[in-house]
């Protein structure tokens, strides 16, 4: 069963028939499992990994370390939720170490991202500091390698 998820995680377009062939499960069973996971939220959604740069579209990404002032009775959830509701925010994570939240923001240009930080993020209540890192080159992201991959060096026929 876990196999089905592993296959979909690699390629969301693998059809139930193919998955059935690959796992030995019945096709109906695969459909039923997927439907159940879609309902229960184990499968959150299907998406495509796009290399926008190769498409010719420049996007700017910033990784922002956000420090949040601690306050009795309030965790980080309220601050986090005020941040993640912005559509330009790609991810928000609570992390250990010198800062509290690690926020990833996407924008059409440096200025747009800088404005977001200055006008939306920094002024938030309890946000005491931000530290912005602009992305320079993406080598690997979420398991996908974005630079040229190795080709197959094998001979055509081998014993």
């Amino acid at each position: 069963m876990r196999e089905v998820l592993k296959i979909l995680e690699q390629d969301a377009r693998t059809s139930p028939a193919q998955i059935a062939a690959m796992t030995g499960l019945a096709e109906d069973e695969v459909r039923r499992l997927i439907a159940e996971w879609e309902r229960s939220g184990v499968i959150r959604r299907y998406k495509t990994v796009v290399d926008w740069e190769r498409f010719g579209e420049e996007k700017v990404y910033a990784y922002i370390d956000v420090s949040v002032a601690p306050e009795r009775g309030a965790g980080f959830d309220d601050v986090a939720s005020r941040i993640y509701r912005y559509p330009e925010v790609r991810s928000v994570m609570l992390v250990s170490g010198g800062h509290d939240l690690r926020v990833v923001v996407e924008g059409a240009g440096i200025k747009e991202v800088a404005n977001f930080v200055a006008e939306k993020l920094a002024p938030l209540d309890r946000v005491t500091a931000t530290n912005t890192h602009f992305l320079l080159k993406r080598y690997k992201d979420d398991g996908d390698i974005f630079v040229e991959s190795d080709s197959d060096h094998r001979l055509m026929v081998a014993p």
């Binding site: 197959d152 001979l155 055509m156 026929v157």
Partner: peptide, 28 residues
């Protein structure tokens, strides 16, 4: 000589061949 050799010679002359003749992993 190995029976595999002859086929290899033909296949390597051709374009767009899908080889199921390889006895080694496709992983690096």
């Amino acid at each position: 000589p190995s029976g595999i050799r002859r086929l290899f010679d033909i296949a390597s002359q051709m374009q767009d061949v899908i080889s199921l003749g390889v006895g080694e992993p496709d992983f690096v």
